[in-house]
Design a protein around this nucleic acid. Structure first.
Ligand SMILES: [Mn+2]
Ligand SMILES: [Mn+2]
Ligand SMILES: [Mn+2]
Ligand SMILES: [Mn+2]
Lengths: 141, 141
DNA sequence: TACTTGGCGTAGCCATTGCTATATTTCCCC
DNA sequence: GGGGAAATATAGCAATGGCTACGCCAAGTA
């Protein structure tokens, strides 16, 4: 099983390859706000666990296992960002919160959150009513 | 700032005192599924950080700071359990998921989840409609 | 082709939080 | 009041995942 930190790296690597075609140590480090030496160490662990194939100083590619996991992680992250946005969390808090919680939800919970999002998408009035509840609660205090 | 682990211990201690009047090392260990030696060590850290006052072999009491934090943590945990229950997560997954995510949500997010819960409480039809969406999505696959 | 330099890798440290093994204290029962 | 068991404390180890300091590689420039 992948640790939260391993998931963060895998997700970032998947996204970099998806968007730029490759994932370099320095890009990963910048994205995750860690030092390059930490990236090297983690890449070696992900290689050992067969999420990717790594050649020192040259580059890395994701294995099928790594691609599959990476995509799931990226989708999960996006879903959770949409969820927090929908319920009205301030933009500035969303990324950090999602980075934290994404590693701790069962796929059951993920599915239920997906359903909840679909519920709000199907009828925009619902989100409006949610915001009305919010305003009423705020007025009480 | 308290780490996730510190929060787990504080929450458990608060709850034990709330329910039984006292919190013993062995009860804390059982509740958190760790060994008693781990509890002793953490209690000493929480003492050092002024969340509680600890007398070796005798017992502990929460400081005002510890009580305030403990209550907030317990309320937050309960809120998140209610949230996952409401959106239809299976009972067996709820405790573990909440134990994980509770440490990673801003108070902004917590407030928005509170609002969402109130939204579903105010009109039980809404939860019914959510379950309808769920059934439709399930039928598609 | 040789030098330089920025990117990358390695070694070793630290904090955190768990564990086991062992020591100490307390409490209960005789 | 003393002995022994249960509870608790301490010491020391391990895994994880950061960091700094320093060494190495290779691409690009002169
Ligand atoms: Mn994350
Ligand atoms: Mn993420
Ligand atoms: Mn927890
Ligand atoms: Mn909790």
């Amino acid at each position: 099983m992948a640790t939260p930190s391993m998931e963060d790296y895998l997700e970032r690597i998947y996204k970099l390859i998806d968007e730029k075609g490759y994932a370099r140590v320095s890009d990963i480090a910048e994205g995750l706000e860690v030092h390059p030496s930490s990236v090297t160490k983690m890449i070696q662990k992900l290689d050992k666990d067969n999420y990717l194939i790594y050649e020192k100083y040259r580059g890395l590619i994701l294995t099928p296992k790594g691609k599959k996991m990476g995509k799931r992680l990226m989708d999960r992250h996006e879903l959770l960002e949409n969820f927090l946005t929908t319920i009205g969390v301030h933009e500035d808090n969303i990324y950090k919160d999602v980075e934290g919680i994404e590693h701790h939800l069962s796929w059951d919970s993920i599915t239920c959150i997906e359903t909840l999002l679909e519920y709000f998408r199907r009828d925009p009035n619902r989100a409006d009513e949610l915001m009305n509840v919010r305003k009423e609660l705020e007025a009480e205090n």
